[in-house]
Lab assay of single mutants.
Amino acid sequence: NQASVVANQLIPISTHLTLVMMRSEVVTPVGIPAEDIPRLVSMQVNRAVPLGTTLMPDMVKGYA
């Protein structure tokens, strides 16, 4: 099972991601792979992401 990136807190819209905001967890459905966490740092979310939500490629500007 592959770990995905999950929000560690509420991430407001247009926030630049930091390591503190993300954790890796095995979830269904599978989202952005956990090994991409370093790549996600300083990218922006294009919507509010609630605590515990799996980050999907379409939620992060410039990821997909």
Rank of each mutant, 00 (worst) to 15 (best):
V6Y: 02
R39V: 13
Q9M: 14
Q44E: 14
G62C: 07
P50A: 12
P50H: 07
S24D: 07
E35H: 14
P57C: 06
M56W: 05
M21Y: 05
I37N: 01
I11L: 08
M59Y: 10
G31W: 03
H16Y: 15
G31P: 00
G62D: 09
V49P: 02
L19G: 06
R23T: 08
T54L: 05
P50I: 05
S42N: 15
A48H: 13
A3R: 14
Y63H: 04
I32N: 00
M21T: 02
V45I: 08
N8P: 01
L40C: 03
V5Q: 00
A7K: 02
T54Y: 03
I13M: 13
R23M: 05
A3H: 12
M43F: 09
M43L: 15
M21A: 03
P38G: 13
A7G: 02
N8R: 08
D36S: 09
S14R: 11
S42I: 03
A48Q: 14
I37V: 06
I13H: 14
I11V: 05
V26L: 12
R23N: 07
V5G: 02
V30R: 14
T54K: 04
S42W: 08
S24G: 14
T54P: 07
T28H: 15
L19E: 13
E25S: 11
R47L: 09
S14E: 15
V41F: 04
V30N: 14
G62W: 08
P29M: 05
N1I: 14
P57R: 08
I13N: 13
S4C: 04
N8W: 04
M43G: 02
T28P: 00
S4M: 02
R47W: 06
V45E: 02
G31C: 03
N8I: 05
P38V: 07
L10N: 14
P12G: 06
L19N: 09
P33S: 10
A48P: 12
S4N: 02
D36E: 15
T15M: 09
I37F: 02
G52Y: 04
T15K: 06
P57F: 07
M59L: 05
G62H: 12
T15Y: 11
V30W: 12
T15D: 04
G31T: 01
P29C: 05
T15H: 06
R23L: 05
I32H: 02
V60A: 02
I13A: 15
V27C: 06
V41S: 03
T15E: 09
G52I: 03
V5M: 02
E35I: 14
V49A: 04
K61L: 14
V20E: 13
V5C: 06
D58R: 09
V26A: 09
D36C: 08
T53P: 01
P33K: 10
M43V: 04
P33V: 10
V26D: 09
I11T: 00
V41R: 05
P57S: 10
E35N: 14
A34N: 06
S42L: 09
G62M: 07
N46R: 09
V60S: 00
P50S: 10
A7P: 02
Y63G: 04
D58Q: 12
Q2M: 13
Q9W: 06
S4H: 01
S24Y: 07
S42V: 04
R39I: 09
D58I: 09
V41Y: 03
L10P: 09
L55H: 01
G62A: 07
L17A: 00
S24N: 06
L10H: 12
